[in-house]
C-alpha cells in the first residue's frame, strides 16, 4: 500500500514520487499475471463494443423480421435470428451497451454511497456507527437478490429501476469494507498528526484516509461490476429482468433455455460472450488484488 507523508511542500513532492513508483510497481506485478492481461484485453474490447455497438449494429434491437424468424446464421444475420426475427448480432451489441450502463451506474452509485457512509461511520463512531452498521447487517443477513426482485416488481423493469435496485442493495458491502479500514487507522499516528496540525475531519478523511483505502476500494469495485452484471441477468431468469424489447444477456440466455433443442445458435453467442466476459472481469479483479494488495487475499 502506498505511504502518504503527513504535510509540507517537499513531502508532498515526495508523496507524488512514491505514488508514481507504487503505481508502476503495481502495474509490473499486474503484467506478470497472463490471465489478468488477457482478461483486461477482453474487458477493454467489451467496453469498446459497448461504446460503438449501437452505431455499428446492422439492425435495430426492436427490428423484427417474422419471415426470417429462428433462422440459422447467414451473411445478413451473422449470428442467426430469434423467434421474433431479431438479428442476434445486433441484439448482442445493444445488450453489451445496456448491460454495461446498468452495471457501471449501479456499481458507481453503490460505491459512492458506501464510501461516504462507511467513512462517516468509521470517523464519527458512536451512535452513527452503530446505527449504520445495523443497517449494513440487515443487508447481509439475507440474499440481496430477493430484495432486488421485490424492488424491481415495485418500481418496474426499466433501466432506471434496475440500477436503483442494484445500488440500494449494493452499497452495504463497500460501507462495511471502508469502515473497517478506517477504524484500523482512525486512532493511528497519521490521523493524530493531521489533527494536531489542525486538519478538519472532512479534510482528514479526504486527504489522509481515502488515499490509504483507495486501492482496497478499487479491488472491491472490480469485483462489484461483474457481480452487478450477473444479478441483472439473473433477474431475467425468473422473468423480472430488463423489459423487452430492450435486449439483455439474461433475456437471451433464459429464452435460449426454452428452445435450444431446435435453435442452438440462440445459445452459443449470448452464453459464450457473457461467460467469457464475467470470467475476464474476475481475472482483472483478481489481478488487481494481487497487484495492489499483494499481502492480502488468498
Amino acid at each position: 500500500m502506498m505511504e502518504v507523508p503527513a504535510t509540507g511542500a517537499p513531502a508532498r513532492g515526495a508523496a507524488i514520487a512514491t505514488r508514481a513508483s507504487a503505481t508502476r510497481r503495481a502495474w509490473s506485478r499486474y503484467r506478470a499475471n497472463p490471465l489478468a492481461v488477457v482478461g483486461l484485453i477482453w474487458v477493454f474490447l467489451f467496453f469498446l463494443l459497448g461504446i460503438i455497438g449501437p452505431w455499428v449494429a446492422p439492425h435495430g434491437y426492436a427490428q423484427t423480421n417474422y419471415l426470417m424468424a429462428n433462422h440459422p446464421p447467414t451473411w445478413a444475420y451473422p449470428m442467426g435470428t430469434d423467434s421474433l426475427g431479431h438479428d442476434m448480432f445486433s441484439e448482442i451489441l445493444f445488450s453489451i451497451r445496456f448491460a454495461l450502463e446498468i452495471a457501471i451506474f449501479a456499481s458507481l452509485a453503490a460505491f459512492t454511497l458506501g464510501t461516504v457512509l462507511g467513512l462517516w461511520a468509521g470517523l464519527q463512531g458512536g451512535l452513527v456507527d452503530t446505527a449504520l452498521m445495523r443497517v449494513v447487517d440487515f443487508f447481509f443477513a439475507f440474499p440481496a437478490y430477493f430484495l432486488d426482485l421485490i424492488l424491481v416488481t415495485k418500481f418496474g423493469r426499466g433501466m432506471g429501476p434496475i440500477i436503483f435496485a442494484l445500488a440500494i442493495t449494493g452499497w452495504a458491502g463497500y460501507a462495511r469494507l471502508i469502515r473497517g479500514l478506517v477504524l484500523g487507522m482512525r486512532d493511528g499516528e497519521m490521523v493524530e498528526a493531521a489533527r494536531a496540525l489542525g486538519s478538519s475531519p472532512l479534510h482528514t478523511a479526504a486527504r489522509y484516509l481515502f488515499p490509504n483505502v483507495v486501492s482496497n476500494m478499487l479491488i472491491a469495485l472490480a469485483f462489484g461490476i461483474p457481480g452487478d452484471l450477473t444479478v441483472q441477468a439473473a433477474l431475467s431468469v425468473v422473468g423480472m429482468g430488463l423489459n423487452p424489447p430492450l435486449p439483455s444477456f439474461g433475456n437471451m440466455i433464459a429464452a435460449a433455455g426454452g428452445n435450444i433443442l431446435g435453435y442452438p445458435w440462440l445459445l452459443y453467442w449470448p452464453a459464450g460472450i457473457f461467460a467469457v466476459t464475467l470470467l475476464s472481469f474476475l481475472f482483472v479483479a483478481d489481478g488487481l488484488q494481487e497487484a495492489l494488495n499483494p499481502k492480502g487475499g488468498y
Partner: peptide, 21 residues
C-alpha cells in the same frame, strides 16, 4: 475461479444443450 465466475443459470443452459443435443 472459472467455476465461481460462471453463474449457475448460464451453466444450466449450457448443460441442457450438452445433454439435450
Amino acid at each position: 475461479m472459472a467455476g465461481q465466475a460462471i453463474p449457475s443459470f448460464v451453466l444450466a443452459v449450457i448443460l441442457v444443450f450438452v445433454f439435450g443435443v
